[in-house]
Write a protein that binds this DNA or RNA. Structure first.
Length: 499
RNA sequence: GGCGCCGUACCCAAGUGGUUAAGGGGAGAGUCUGCAAAACUUUUAUUCAGCAGUUCGAAUCUGCUCGGCGCCUCCA
C-alpha cells in the first residue's frame, strides 16, 4: 500500500472474504445504508451500524471519490414478526402507538414523524455524514406498487386472498447471501406461523399485505393494504442510486431475511446484480451481554448525550473504536476513556489556536512531516477494511506529537497543524466539535455553573498560596473538590473544572 | 439441527505467513509543582487458550481439544 493508492478493501458478506471495492463508475462510490424503523429513539447499537456506512463514505471522500450516500427511514411495513416470510404480527409503528410512550401521539403518522426527526437529530449529533437523500418508505408507495406489478407480470410473484408474495422458487439463488440455502433452514421457523394456506412455499415473502384495517394503508391493484418491509429498500436504492449499487450496508441481523429478500426481488426486477458488496456491522453488546430493555443495559443516543452529559464526539469515538467486523463490547469505561481523549483534543486545539497568533520562530517542519505520515497511515488503515482501531491509534499519535512540541509550534506551523488535524477529523469525525446551533449547552454549562462561591474560594486559595499558607490552600481545594470540581494549576494561574 | 465468529499483557484491543507483537486504560519510575491534578518522558507480552501438523519461518495456514459468543427467533 502506498499513499497514492486509492483502493478500499472491505469484508464482503456475500463473498465472505475481504475484497477490494471495484466501483461501477470510476471515482464514484454508491452506498446504500439501511436506516432505522422509526418506532422509537435510536439506540447506540443502531448508531454503530450507521457509523460504519458513514466511515466508508468518509474514507472514500478523503481518497477523492465522489461518494453517493443514501440512507432510508422505514416508517411502514416492518412487522413484529417479519422474520417469518408471512409477515404476520403487528406493525411496529402501530404497536408503538399503543405503548405508554405512544400515548402522546394522535396517530401513527405523527409518531413516525417524531421519531424520524429524532433519528436525524441524533445522527447529526454523532456527526454522521448527511445522506444525499433520506427516503421514507411511505413516500415511495407508488414505486413499490409498480415494482410488485412488474414482478407479477414477469412471473416472480403471485397474488392470494391475503397478499402478494414473492415466489422464491423462481430465484434459485435465494439464500446466497445468508447461507440459508437448505430447505430445512428455510422451513424451520416458518411452519408454526403459516397463516396463508395459498402460499406456494412457506418461505415466500410478502410484497404487499392486503389489510383494510391497517393504520397506514394505501389503495393498490390488490385493494387496500400496505407494502412488505423488504421491498422499500430495493425500490429506493434503485431509484436514487441505480439498478446496481456498489455497497449495501446494514446491521448483521438484516442479513436474513431482509437483505436476502432485497437481493431476490431486486435481481428479478432488473436481471442485474443488486449490490456488488455487502457490508454488515456486527452487533454491539453492553458489558458482555446483549443490549436489551429487559436487562436494563439499553442506551439510546439521546439519553447519553442529553441526560448523561456525554460529549457526542466521545460517544462517536467509543462506538467506532472497534472495527465493524468484530462484535463491540460497550462499557462505561470505554466512554470514560473516550471522554478524556476528546477533552485532550480540545486542549491541544485551543493551545494551537492561541499559538497561531504567535510569531513562528523556526522553519522546522519535522512535526508537520510526522503528522503528515500519521495521517496517511490512518487513511491507509481505513482503506484496509475500515480499521478504526489503527486509525485512532495514529490520531492519538498525532496529538501526542503536537502535545510534546506544543511550545515550539507557533504561527504558520500552528495553522498547518490545525489544517492537518482537520484532515484527521474529516476522516474520523470526532476531533473538532460540531458547530452548535444553540441546543448544546455544555460550554455555558461549565462556565455558568462555576458559581461565584467557587470563584471566591479559588481566589482565596490563590492568595493563600501566595502567602505560602499551604494548609489553608489545601483545605480550600478539598472544599472545592467536595463541590464536584477539580483544580488545575498552570503556570498562568488556577482554574476549576467539573469532574 | 443448520450457518458463522472469537480466545493476544491486569483490562479493552490492532495485527491473518518473516514487524522491536500497534494503540488505549491501569500500574510503576522520572520531569514540572509547596503538595496534588493535568501534561510530557519512560517501564510494563521472547509471546499470542492447549496439543499436533504444514513451512526455512506460524499469533497468523490445517486438524483436533478446551473455553466464550452470535445468527437462523424482536433487533442495527
Amino acid at each position: 500500500m502506498n499513499s497514492s493508492d486509492t483502493s478500499i478493501k472491505i469484508y464482503d458478506s456475500l463473498q465472505k472474504k475481504e475484497v477490494e471495492i471495484k466501483t461501477l463508475q470510476e471515482g464514484i462510490l454508491t452506498v446504500y445504508s439501511c436506516g432505522p424503523t422509526v418506532y422509537n429513539y435510536v439506540h447506540i447499537g443502531n448508531m454503530r451500524s450507521f457509523l460504519t456506512a458513514d466511515l466508508l463514505v468518509r474514507t472514500a471522500t478523503c481518497l477523492g471519490y465522489k461518494a453517493l450516500f443514501v440512507s432510508n427511514i422505514t416508517d411502514v411495513g416492518h412487522l413484529t414478526t417479519d422474520d417469518v416470510a408471512d409477515s404476520c404480527g403487528e406493525d411496529k409503528l402501530a404497536k408503538a402507538l399503543k405503548s405508554k410512550e405512544g400515548e402522546c401521539f394522535q396517530n401513527v403518522w405523527e409518531l413516525s414523524e417524531y421519531y424520524a426527526e429524532c433519528y436525524i437529530q441524533d445522527s447529526e449529533a454523532l456527526n454522521i455524514t448527511t445522506p444525499l437523500v433520506r427516503p421514507k418508505a411511505t413516500q415511495h408507495i407508488q414505486e413499490q406498487i409498480r415494482a410488485i406489478e412488474k414482478l407479477i407480470e414477469d412471473g416472480f410473484a403471485y397474488v392470494t386472498d391475503n397478499a402478494v408474495y414473492f415466489d422464491i422458487s423462481k430465484f434459485p439463488e435465494y439464500g446466497k447471501l445468508s447461507g440459508n440455502v437448505s430447505q430445512d433452514s428455510l422451513l424451520r421457523h416458518v411452519r408454526e406461523v403459516v397463516k396463508d394456506s395459498d402460499k406456494n412455499h412457506p418461505a415466500d415473502f410478502a410484497l404487499w399485505k392486503k389489510d383494510d384495517n391497517h393504520l397506514m394503508q394505501w389503495y393498490s391493484p390488490w385493494g387496500w393494504g400496505f407494502p412488505g418491509w423488504h421491498l422499500e429498500c430495493s425500490v429506493m436504492a434503485m431509484k436514487y442510486l441505480g439498478e446496481t449499487i456498489d455497497v449495501h450496508a446494514g446491521g448483521e441481523d438484516l442479513l436474513f431475511p431482509h437483505h436476502e429478500c432485497e437481493v431476490a426481488q431486486s435481481e428479478c426486477l432488473t436481471g442485474k446484480t443488486f449490490a456488488n458488496y455487502w457490508l454488515h456491522t456486527r452487533f454491539l453488546q453492553v458489558d458482555g451481554e446483549k443490549m436489551s430493555k429487559s436487562k436494563g443495559n439499553f442506551f439510546t443516543v439521546r439519553d447519553l448525550i442529553h441526560n448523561q452529559g456525554i460529549d457526542p464526539r466521545a460517544l462517536r469515538y467509543a462506538l467506532v473504536s472497534t472495527p465493524y467486523t468484530k462484535p463491540f463490547n460497550f462499557t462505561k469505561q470505554i466512554l470514560v476513556d473516550a471522554s478524556k481523549k476528546i477533552k485532550r483534543f480540545d486542549e491541544v486545539i485551543n493551545k494551537l489556536n492561541e499559538n497561531t497568533r504567535l510569531k513562528s520562530e523556526s522553519e522546522d517542519n519535522t512535526v508537520l512531516n510526522i503528522l503528515d505520515k500519521l495521517y496517511s497511515d490512518a487513511l491507509d488503515a481505513m482503506r484496509n477494511n475500515l480499521n478504526t482501531s489503527v486509525a485512532i491509534a495514529k490520531t492519538l499519535g498525532a496529538f501526542k506529537q503536537i502535545g510534546s512540541n506544543i511550545e515550539e509550534i507557533k504561527g504558520s506551523n500552528a495553522t498547518a497543524c490545525l489544517t492537518l488535524l482537520k484532515k484527521f477529523d474529516s476522516l474520523l469525525g470526532f476531533i473538532f466539535p460540531k458547530m452548535e446551533t444553540g441546543t448544546e449547552k455544555s460550554d455555558e454549562d461549565s462556565s455558568c455553573q462555576i458559581s461565584d462561591e467557587i470563584n471566591h474560594l479559588l481566589t482565596q486559595r490563590i492568595n493563600a498560596k501566595k502567602e505560602k499558607d499551604y494548609a489553608l490552600a489545601d483545605s480550600i481545594r478539598n472544599k472545592i473538590q467536595e463541590m464536584g470540581y477539580k483544580i488545575i494549576d498552570t503556570p498562568e494561574g488556577s482554574t476549576v473544572e467539573r469532574f
